[in-house]
């Protein structure tokens, strides 16, 4: 079958911009699984695709916005969340999803992440965490584990990594989860849940990078890495995110935070109504 036919006949064809295929991602990359889970979540929720906006930053996963067939925007490096905040508040009926990477969201864009979480802006942030800057050839990122080898840590990393779920929870996110690309069904369910909640949600997706990070660190093929995920993932819902660290021997996964708190948009709408009611009162005097 020709490439175009395969695409057109795929049950999820309508979710992808077929003219943008083939994508740029390497064989074995976890980005495809992440996108697949996201599309499955949209499909199962029957969300109106005209009202979904996907925003991404720079990096391998940054291209996701261009592939998913909804309104989408590929921002400058690190600014996806700030852009998405503007979109959501300017048009509250949109479902706004940020899909980006560990370097983009937590190094250059770290400040926007903590402030959007603090404000509890109703956006869904999904982070593909592959522990490295893949697009630029494998430099260390804010999540690169101690002692790991990257092109800019040729003697092993001496920087302590962020625990992203802890950062998100401490900053004010109402929903925080972590999965590897192995737990696709659970990842999809988490995405569904976050899409149905009102507020800032964060889902970390531990994702293989067989071409660069995994190879440099002798983790084997993509399949080997998936096997490793299977061996060392430990599902612990409700686990204290500050303790949910990632080590060589353990990746703590699960839903770590699921609470309710008024979103920024809700508080803004309530304030606006109060202001306008008061004005109406004054005007009618």
């Amino acid at each position: 079958m020709k490439k175009s036919n395969i695409l057109q006949n795929h049950p999820f064809a309508k979710y992808l911009r077929q003219d943008r295929m083939p994508h740029i991602w390497c064989a074995g990359c976890g980005n495809g699984i992440l996108i697949n889970s996201f599309i499955n979540a949209l499909d199962e929720l029957s969300i109106d695709l005209d009202k979904v906006v996907v925003v991404s930053g720079i990096g391998c996963i940054g291209r996701a916005a261009g592939y998913i067939n909804v309104d989408s925007f590929h921002t400058t490096h690190g600014r996806a969340i700030a852009f998405a905040t503007g979109v959501k508040l300017a048009n509250p009926e949109l479902k706004v999803v940020v899909i980006s990477g560990d370097g983009d969201l937590f190094a250059i864009g770290g400040n926007h992440f903590i402030h959007a979480a603090r404000r509890n802006v109703d956006i869904k942030v999904i982070c593909a965490n592959n522990f490295t800057y893949g697009m630029t050839g494998g430099q260390y990122s804010p999540t690169t584990p101690l002692e790991s080898w990257t092109t800019t840590t040729p003697y092993g990393s001496i920087e302590h990594p962020f625990n992203l779920v802890h950062l998100a929870a401490a900053s004010g996110a109402i929903y925080v989860a972590r999965w590897t690309t192995l737990q696709v069904r659970r990842l999809k369910n988490s995405i569904k849940k976050s899409l149905q909640k009102e507020g800032f949600s964060f889902i970390e997706v531990i994702s293989p990078c067989p071409t660069i990070y995994d190879r440099y660190n002798k983790l084997g093929t993509a399949t080997d890495v998936m096997r490793l995920f299977k061996q060392i993932s430990q599902v612990q819902h409700g686990y204290d995110p500050s303790k949910a660290v990632i080590t060589k021997n353990q990746i703590m996964v699960g839903e770590f935070m699921d609470i309710e708190k008024p979103s920024y948009g809700r508080l803004l709408r309530e304030m606006t109504i109060r202001v306008q009611e008061k004005l109406k009162g004054e005007e009618s005097k």
């Binding site: 906006v53 925003v55 925007f73 921002t75 400058t76 600014r79 700030a82 852009f83 998405a84 905040t85 503007g86 979109v87 959501k88 508040l89 300017a90 048009n91 949109l94 400040n111 926007h112 402030h115 803004l268 304030m271 606006t272 202001v275 306008q276 004005l279």
Partner: peptide
């Protein structure tokens, strides 16, 4: 707020203009 608009004080000027571009694309 008097006209139903949005005032947003961002964390810095980088975020400010990013949000403004977002709002512009949101119409």
């Amino acid at each position: 707020p008097e006209i139903g608009g949005v005032y947003l004080q961002m964390e810095d000027e980088i975020a400010s203009i990013a949000a403004v571009i977002g709002a512009s694309f949101a119409g």
